[in-house]
Amino acid sequence: MVSALYGAVESGLIYAIMALGVYISFRILDFPDLTVDGSFVTGGAVTSVMIVGGSSPIVATLAGAFAGLLAGIITGLLHTKGNINPLLAGILMMIALYSINLRIMGQPNIPMLNETTLFTMISQTWTNLALDQVLIVPFKWLGIASYAPSTFYVIVSMMIIVLTVKKLLDFFLRTEAGITLRATGDNQSMVKSFSTNTNLYITLGMGLSNALVALSGALIVQFNGFADVNLGVGMIIIGLASVIIGEVLFGKDKIVRMTLAVILGSIVYRAIYALALRVDFLEASDMKLITALIVISALVLPNTLEKSKAKREFKKSQRRALNHNQEGGVQHASAK
């Protein structure tokens, strides 16, 4: 049970990068981008092929992210230059990428079990530094050593990577260019009237978004030890679930808080996933349905709650007014 939660934190951190990408397209640019389902795999495909081919895992990972950047830019161009509706542009790109991913991989599945990946590299350095022995100490003090994870290297290294990505993103979104990007999603015609090529910003924003998604895909295939062409199915919904869970549970107006919320949302989603898998009557294949239900309830509930609250308040005030009137009426009658 506890080890399942550690697993959830590990994969939650890796998927958090994807969720940050979805946050850029879905929230900042207001562009529901289905490219994600394809570009996630593209990142993994490029990375796995390069690793199997003997490239350095770091180069392979960056190349995977770059492939996602290109995919996102094409989606952006389809929308801005081709005037294709955002949803449709994303769907088209997703379908196209399925074939392209298969071409890149050459086969539907690439195992990487005996290859040097980013994670085997980190693991090696980690063991050499003997950091696990240091990190286990607080668990021993608290007397819960048996609940400690077998190793900390994934959590710690991913935390460093994810926080670096978050910091860079926070920084970028508050630069002049970043402010313009956010304003483009908020009021495009206004930004245009201040001499901005909004098409450029949308295109580059989509590129950035999908670069993060592909980076996440590149890390996932190395974490899992294999790449699969169907890895990305439903990825956009998982990204949305993370963004929405994060916003509802931890969200605040500030950018710094929002990116943090998205990361935490991704971890919470993975924890829900891990728990759901342990319930007897649910199967792994039910997860997509559960994800859809999570997103639907996260989208519907806040609105409904607010409305019913407003209604309750209104009824209360009416009742108060009614009581007041009756009292008034009584007084009036007695005065007569």
Binding site: A183, F194, T196
Partner: peptide, 30 residues
Amino acid sequence: LMGTAPGMTIEENMMISLGRTQNRSLFSGI
């Protein structure tokens, strides 16, 4: 509603209008 971006702060909106005459920097904010 057309001349301003509602989800952004006043200073961020002003920053957008400042970008009308100067290039927008990738490395510095407000």
